[in-house]
Design a protein around this nucleic acid. Sequence first.
DNA 1: GCTCATTGGGAAAGCGCGTTCCCATTGGTT
DNA 2: AACCAATGGGAACGCGCTTTCCCAATGAGC
Lengths: 357, 357
Amino acid sequence: MAASTLTEVARLAGVSPATASRVLNGSARKPGKDITERVRQAAESLGYIPNAQAQGLAKSSSGLIGLIVHDIADPYFAAIARGVQEAAREQHKMVLLATTGGGPTEEREAVAAFAARRADSIVIAGSRSCRTEDQDGNAELAAELDRYCRNGGQVAVVGHPVVGATVQEGYHVVRVPNQELARRLAAELAAGWDGDFVIVGGPEGLLTSDDRVRGFQEGLERAGRPQAEVLRTAFNRSGGYDAGLQLAGRIKAPGSGEAAPKLCIFAVNDVMAIGTAAALRAEGLRIPRDAAIAGFDDIETLRDFRPALSTVRLPLEDIGRLATRATRGRPDGEEGEEAAPGAVTGEVTLRRSTEAA
Amino acid sequence: MAASTLTEVARLAGVSPATASRVLNGSARKPGKDITERVRQAAESLGYIPNAQAQGLAKSSSGLIGLIVHDIADPYFAAIARGVQEAAREQHKMVLLATTGGGPTEEREAVAAFAARRADSIVIAGSRSCRTEDQDGNAELAAELDRYCRNGGQVAVVGHPVVGATVQEGYHVVRVPNQELARRLAAELAAGWDGDFVIVGGPEGLLTSDDRVRGFQEGLERAGRPQAEVLRTAFNRSGGYDAGLQLAGRIKAPGSGEAAPKLCIFAVNDVMAIGTAAALRAEGLRIPRDAAIAGFDDIETLRDFRPALSTVRLPLEDIGRLATRATRGRPDGEEGEEAAPGAVTGEVTLRRSTEAA
DNA sequence: GCTCATTGGGAAAGCGCGTTCCCATTGGTT
DNA sequence: AACCAATGGGAACGCGCTTTCCCAATGAGC
């Protein structure tokens, strides 16, 4: 990777490197018209491409935004990534991608790697965990982030603050009203469904999942309904599938003497909901005839799924964008107080999958 | 972004920067045991993180892999990205992401940006285009890539070579047998379907789309079937939807005197197929009763779609991995001739959506 | 006991660029 | 005509690190 350098350009144009730099890479001082032209031509003819590493070194700022996701192939993260990417383009920066599988240890490594590259800011998407087994990892992640921020880095986290983080200088959180939205979803579902509710949740300690579970239960309570049973499983399609199999068994072979239960299943995200639905179908059950089902996120690719999935629409792309912008400081020139990052809102979207028979 | 530097660590440990460097960042020379330990401790206590920019500058290699996709939120690209990401991790490199929307101009810019960052290699996913309107853009893209390669960069392209590229030093192509697979798909479909075939293709000139169309026609021909009509539309869901509407009209209101045609629709990718299916359904038609439909790619998220979509399974993640590895030179130690990158193969997968009534 | 290879550490020269400081021209004042 | 401010260009340093080169100290070999 040895391209032509600024010095070479300068020599060819018969000027000093300083002048060439002023011409080619925006500086306060503008050299004379003729010189400018000469340098431009020299650069052109040599195919000069400025070395961003050297530039970064010299002005200590890299033009890089680090993005941390669990899995880029998961449509949830892919959607957020699109938003981040877009915002990055606005800022004339590039996105550095790290996928971690969700473990705080890998996340810590990713943050360190970003810090090493002197990324200007870091966006962390993906549910925080407060499971005890992640405790140490979280602490180290928090420490790493603190250090990064103290060194002037900007961090934005989607959803929840990193457990244990203490710095707030340059530390932003894009809050997602998971709990409230789940509550509203429960309320609307309760209005049109008189059977029981079951929740298919992620592992306990996954904050996003927990919020949605809690909100849903609150919604049921306010609607005067009994609390729903909570099945804990993996936070992905296959987790949903497993839960679906279990539920299908229960629906097809109810306890002796009971009638088949009329179940409305709330899976805490769309991908799990699809998995659950697939399992029910594989067991010969139909939706919503034999069981209703709802998800959360309103993943774009899944909107053509039939029966159309009731869910909560989350503006994932906006979320990515907001998070990225939050790291920018105030929006363009304005000075305002930490420029409220435009609260994220969602929308309960009832569709066919929860229509009463 | 000012963290502690190697010099500071060295001073604290009471050694020279050279020694500190040797200790902390792998070097051929290993300093003595006690010194090593002293430096380690100093680094630890200062929370030293090496400046990758400076390292890159000094050894002119950045540890960066550039990935170019049309749209990271498209599950096709997201799957490839996952593979790239994995392979990057193997190589202890980070992935720099650029989304271009598919235009050669944006792709050229992305390549230039990667070159500026001195990315060690670049992976380009996404269909090449040979439309006349893209001609100039392609030429410039090719020129940019040539330059990048001449400077020692490694490039891997998924699918087709960039139109007009001339260098082959460090220029790799992961070929995808789109044509052959489409041919096989047509053959298998023809065996079980006696109605007409229609192809919903992308804009003419999109190489991937063209290959699949051509292959499918070949397959029909070899099966003794007449060529299929080709509908040109956008290479995404909404393009598929539009085509679906059009076809629905034709199925519901056949020309006077004709019977409703028995159509088998081949959409050149899964996302388009889903769009087409959605349109048919919106028009009150059922699949496969009123029309059969098949796609291409076998996108993971779409596998739970009902009726299950007939398609061609493409190992997208592997493709990303292979492309990334191809840029690495020979696999680990081995010297072999350009180490054949393990040909990509796919698999025709017939499912419910094309079952004869 | 002396020489010679070897080891282990430091000094210094870059890597490519931005930027500060300094110097040589100008053009305009009184 | 002499002087000063303004303008435009260059020399040189620093960003943080790697790496070559050099030197001192050690051990082996005769």
